[in-house]
């Protein structure tokens, strides 16, 4: 059993939890993920490590409440326990040896982009962060990003905060203004990553994306997380989660991410009071 040391609502649909997991905390690196199970009947879900404290023996996760498992997780209180927490899984992000990097975070993807931005900053790179949200209410980790960024751009779809527009608009502006990036790191919804990659391809800038597909074990056993990368089948859990974004078949990844959408909707309708029929 793994104790929830701290719980904080970042916005109405996104929660931060600090989990006591000393073995994972000792080895975790930016870009890696964990798999958790809330209770004994629970499914295994992957979540990217949003932070860790090696001395305290804790790992921070940030999750969006999207289905029945994240709802169950969100119902847990500080001091309570979850059944399983395994990691660190996958390969760490490469953060060393860069001069200037643009880090793009979209929505809850910012929770994954942030530790990478922070690590890049600590490893000496000039970090330009562009974060995008649907509206002001959904903004998370703004101060954290600002602290580790040499340049910071906030975008919202509706213009309720920062600039109105998409992260790709902001990235394009920076590139056109003469910024030379060694690399772009884009983490967010698949559709956002796809369009960031389309843009950077035009400028020939290497782009890394973090993939978070459906998986079970996280150690290469089920193959559920497979992706086509450069025409080859790769397992996100062991070969990734970071991949060269220009080589990923995003349309396939988008189709695969929706395979259990009906099941999730039904499970959500069962647990969500708002949707319960009278």
């Amino acid at each position: 059993m793994y104790k929830i040391l701290r719980k904080k609502e970042l916005n109405p649909t996104v929660t931060l939890m600090e989990i006591e997991a000393p073995f994972v905390a000792k080895k975790a690196l930016a870009g890696q993920f964990i798999i958790l199970r809330v209770d004994d009947e629970g499914e295994r879900i992957p979540l990217t490590v949003a932070g860790y404290d090696r001395e305290k023996g804790s790992v921070t996760i940030i999750f969006q409440i999207v289905g029945s498992t994240t709802e169950k997780l969100n119902a847990k209180k500080e001091g309570e326990y979850i059944s399983d927490f395994v990691g660190p899984l996958g390969k760490a992000s490469e953060t060393k040896g860069f001069k200037k990097v643009a880090v793009i975070g979209g929505g809850v993807g910012c929770a994954i982009a942030y530790p990478t931005a922070k690590q890049l900053h600590e490893d000496g790179a000039e970090v330009h962060s562009i974060v995008g949200f649907r509206n002001h209410d959904l903004v998370i980790l703004e101060d954290e990003f600002k602290k580790c960024s040499d340049k910071f751009v906030m975008m919202t779809d509706d213009g309720s905060y920062g600039e109105k527009g998409l992260v790709t608009d902001a990235l394009k502006k920076l590139i056109e203004s003469g910024e030379k990036y060694d690399e772009v790191i884009a983490i967010g919804p698949l559709i956002m990553m796809k369009f960031v990659c389309k843009l950077t391809e035009q400028y020939g800038i290497k782009t890394i994306v973090s993939m978070n597909p459906i998986m079970i074990d996280g150690t290469g056993m089920c193959g559920g997380c497979r992706l086509t990368v450069g025409g080859e089948t790769k397992f996100a859990c062991v070969d990734g989660p970071d991949f060269d974004g220009h080589k990923i078949d995003f349309d396939e990844a988008i189709a695969r991410s929706g395979v259990y959408r009906n099941f999730e909707r039904q499970a959500h309708e069962k647990t969500c009071n708002l949707l319960k029929g009278e």
Binding site: I216, C222, G223, G224, R226, T233, R256
Partner: peptide, 11 residues
Amino acid sequence: ENLNGVYSANE
């Protein structure tokens, strides 16, 4: 092989 509905036996 990567279509939805293709599983490894393991999965």
